[in-house]
Amino acid sequence: MATTHGAESTSGETTAGTEVPHDAQATGSFPPFDSATFPSQLLWLAITFGVLYWAMTKVALPRISGILEDRRDRIAGDLAEANRLKQESDAAIAAYEQALAEARNRAHGIASDTRAKLKAETDARRRDAEAQLGKRLADAEERISEIKSAALSQVGDIATETTSALVEALIGKAPSKTELDKAVKAALK
């Protein structure tokens, strides 16, 4: 740096000679320690910091703390609401499960009742049907035996007539009734 300056100006001495007074003229000393600037700096610091303090106290901080409080309240409120809803839904689930269990029990009861009733009904019908069938069977048997005895009683007459016709055809003369009955009875035995 010194060589550059030296090359630019005619001599290094004049450069140094101009530099030092220039600094001294501008400040008199190292600027931060120049007490001539202190009153001005203190005054303006007091004014600006005062304004900042006022703006923070009156506007910015109440607003930010308001925002944060609103948010905290809102979150707390939402959580409480969520808790309440959860309890409600828990209660609803419990009630539903209880109702379900009751309904299941009732359905079970109804089913077994119905089963018992149906069984009784079918049993009764079956007994009826069996009784009816038995009666009809007995009737039929009775009629068969009637028809049988009727048929058997007529067998004698038919035999007598047939025998009389046969005898007449063979010998040309009808036999007497008593003889016929005797002969037929003997044959039927």
């Binding site: 001539a36 600037t37 009153p39 001005s40 700096q41 005054l43 303006w44 610091l45 004014i47 600006t48 910091f49 304004v51 900042l52 703006a55 923070m56 506007v59 910015a60 930010i64």
Partner: peptide, 22 residues
């Protein structure tokens, strides 16, 4: 000497930026 200096200007700027931001 209570002059409004470049230091004062930047104090004002600091306060203005802070207050406007917040």
């Amino acid at each position: 000497d209570l002059s409004f200096t470049n230091a004062s200007l930047f104090m004002v700027a600091t306060v203005a930026v802070t207050a406007l931001f917040l």
